[in-house]
Simulated assay, not measured.
Amino acid sequence: MTASDASLTMSDKDREGPAHVGFLLIPDFALLAYASAVEPLRAANRLSGRALYRWSHISIDGTPAPASNGISIDADCGVGNEMRFDYVFVCAGGNPAGFQHPPTFGWLRQLARRGVKLGGISGGPYVLARANVLSGYRFTIHWEHAPAFLEDYPDLDLRRSLYEIDRDRLTSSGGTAPLDMMHAVIAREHGSALAIAVSEWFLQTHVRQGEGPQRMPLRERLGISHAPLLRVVGRMEQNLENPLSREELARMAGVSLRQLERLFRLHLGRSLGEHYLALRLERARDLLRQTSLSVLETGLACGFTSASHFSRAYRGRFGHSPRTERAPHGPLWR
């Protein structure tokens, strides 16, 4: 039994009654990711014929919490409530980097001191990091938030996995990944037979391991099968701050630069340079929306050598300046 196994099972043995799970719903949370975490608990109760879990919803002020699709969920309590929990999962989406609420951060630190198991779903780990309760733990976050997160917290142990369970920290990248994480939790607390029954209840024909990738392979994502081209595009995505030269990329593909340009035109409908620029500008847009980096810092983080060059390229791609992206009524809020 691993340390993470023990941290989940020992508390269950000592517990009287069902485990109490709190879902802290940060405004604009992702509804699918939340549902993927709470529904396995309901199924475990139903299929076992026992009340193994109960759950409560928490909002920052005790009022209904709005999801990113406009649906609101009534809160049972607000942040700071003295209700006793075995687990608290922070569910966040939208732009978790912009969430600032000191009472929430203080309450999460208080829960950590009490030994409550803390989880983060989708953008939730960003909130846990803000509360300073992830130091010394491995964890994951939705791939969309990862670039901004690494700018803010370069020294934390972020993994690009589906989910991570490290002692009393449980994090999931969101989407349907919480189904896989809760399978692991239920299996460790109540046995693999029940966990398998819960997964089959939700028509999971394959339960993914935590270390699995968050994104589709490039072959499926781009709809191409040319191996050398896929290898080059993968390296481009990994080198946005310090772009590789066209000659380096051609050597990686084992073809001439002219042949590589022809492959980009044939399979992706644009030149090598146009594709690389698009990748860097899309990363820049994410950083502008999710971090407090200046326009110049954002440009440098995406391989641009000057603010003017970055601004021209950004306007050419998106039709507005980088500063407009961050304006109170700019594209981010539309």
Rank of each mutant, 00 (worst) to 15 (best):
F310C: 03
R280K: 03
R159S: 09
A19E: 12
S122T: 08
S308H: 13
L272H: 02
R265A: 15
F304V: 05
R231M: 08
R270N: 08
Y153T: 00
T176S: 13
A30M: 09
L134W: 00
W333F: 13
S292G: 10
Y276E: 06
G175L: 12
K117V: 15
V90W: 15
L41Y: 01
L41K: 01
L279E: 03
P102H: 05
D157A: 12
M83I: 08
V116P: 13
V38L: 03
H320A: 02
A129T: 03
K117G: 00
I196Y: 15
L32P: 04
L257M: 09
S256E: 14
A146D: 07
Y163L: 06
E144R: 12
A75T: 11
D76S: 10
F149K: 01
V255L: 09
R113C: 06
R246Q: 10
R283L: 15
I121K: 04
R84N: 08
L222W: 11
P66F: 08
H206T: 11
L162Y: 00
N242F: 15
I224F: 11
F310S: 02
A35T: 13
M252H: 13
P18F: 06
F89E: 14
W107T: 06
E247P: 00
R109F: 00
P331E: 11
G94D: 07
L194T: 01
E16H: 05
E164M: 14
H145S: 07
R167Q: 12
L249I: 06
V185H: 05
R326D: 00
H206E: 11
A253D: 02
H275D: 04
S294T: 14
G174F: 14
S36C: 14
G49D: 07
P322H: 15
L111A: 10
G120A: 06
V116K: 14
F202H: 08
S48Q: 07
H267T: 12
D74R: 13
E247Y: 02
G273K: 08
M236E: 01
G94Y: 15
R109Y: 01
I141R: 02
L244F: 02
V233A: 05
K13F: 15
H206F: 07
L266E: 12
A307V: 13
S59K: 10
R312W: 00
L170G: 03
T63I: 06
S161K: 05
T291M: 03
A6L: 12
L288V: 03
E164L: 08
V90A: 04
Y126S: 02
T140W: 01
R312C: 05
L279Q: 07
E211A: 10
H267A: 15
R84W: 03
L244R: 15
